[in-house]
Design a protein around this nucleic acid. Sequence first.
DNA 1: TCATACATACATGCACGAATGTATGTAAAT
DNA 2: ATTTACATACATTCGTGCATGTATGTATGA
Lengths: 205, 205
Amino acid sequence: MARRTRDEALETRHAILDAAELAFQENGVSRTSLAEIAKRAGVTRGAIYWHFENKAALFDAMIQRVFDPLERMLQDLRTHEDDNPVVALRSIAAYYLERVATDPQYVRVLEIAWHKCEYVGEMAVIRDNHLECGNRYLDLNETGFRLAQQRGYLRTDVDPRQAAVGFIALVDGLVVNWTLDGSQFPLGDYGPRCLDAYLEGLKAR
Amino acid sequence: MARRTRDEALETRHAILDAAELAFQENGVSRTSLAEIAKRAGVTRGAIYWHFENKAALFDAMIQRVFDPLERMLQDLRTHEDDNPVVALRSIAAYYLERVATDPQYVRVLEIAWHKCEYVGEMAVIRDNHLECGNRYLDLNETGFRLAQQRGYLRTDVDPRQAAVGFIALVDGLVVNWTLDGSQFPLGDYGPRCLDAYLEGLKAR
DNA sequence: TCATACATACATGCACGAATGTATGTAAAT
DNA sequence: ATTTACATACATTCGTGCATGTATGTATGA
């Protein structure tokens, strides 16, 4: 193929990432070769090595393409619309669950991230990045719960950090189990209600 | 090495499984060769191929060695000690969390199962087995919650299945996140309290 | 009880494919 | 003219599966 223009090159890059999503979802990260991805994307391995350093970098880019916008959403978030910060935390989590339940790209990438890759070697670095992001989210929730407690919305006998840990575990657990077997329960339906049940147990009486 | 007796052969088998646990935890399932496992176990690949058909069968055996006893515990379980079946469900889950928090073998195997393998190809069959087991556990919880609701222990406005789904998601989420990064929170401490918070939100008023 | 025949529990070696990384070719965009 | 955006070709590594070797445990019959 002849040389393509800048925009076309960007299209190629996205085509590769799209192909990688589908291939990884079907066969797992370690069992899909770059040749397989190239074939699906209608290019050769040369194109992949042009755009990405190696498979780990390609994987990282695939993840970031989906989660970078989400992270940015988290940063310019106003948690001060309601006096009870838990309201905001709940709506963030509910939005996330709804997004996962409806956006097929989210489903693909989350299924890959949770069940179709091994966080080892070069991949471990990628995991650490997301762990860091997860820690920020944990802190966000913890301070929210702590504030709610000070304002009398939360029971005084629970540790705010523990409340945050449980809340995040619930969200992650729902996504992990649903991406493992979507026929077990409707995520968009059950998810938010489970959140409400958990938060109900934390409310001050 | 000369031929070993039956008991010694069993020891070899367990040595291979032990070595596989450590190797898989360090380098992931797909990136550890059978040669590496053999080296750690002090044998050669011949021994592994004698005891197991291939890597997938070895992985399956490694999982079953840990979870078969747990499954058997679930089966001869008496849930009728307390009038409220949720009490039993809570104690099962709490026992599981405590076990994970204290038994290093559980930690290894769960870390591998959740984060260091790809459920694809021959592995998918193994995953399906555990999904089936998970479904039985889900049913157990669902009927427990339903019974509790009939007996007036549970709020009438929640779906028992949804309650069960959330409960299991919470347990799995705690384990998944803790095996991902054990420094985030103390599982043995926070885990049971998170369960209580969730169950508190389901109680009838 | 003891010799024999067979099964067992591995070790060793080889052939094969598969995947990666890189070096190089190439034609068009800039 | 030079860089870009790939395609092509090649070398190398690595793991698997299998075939085969081998020495000993174990059961069996006389």
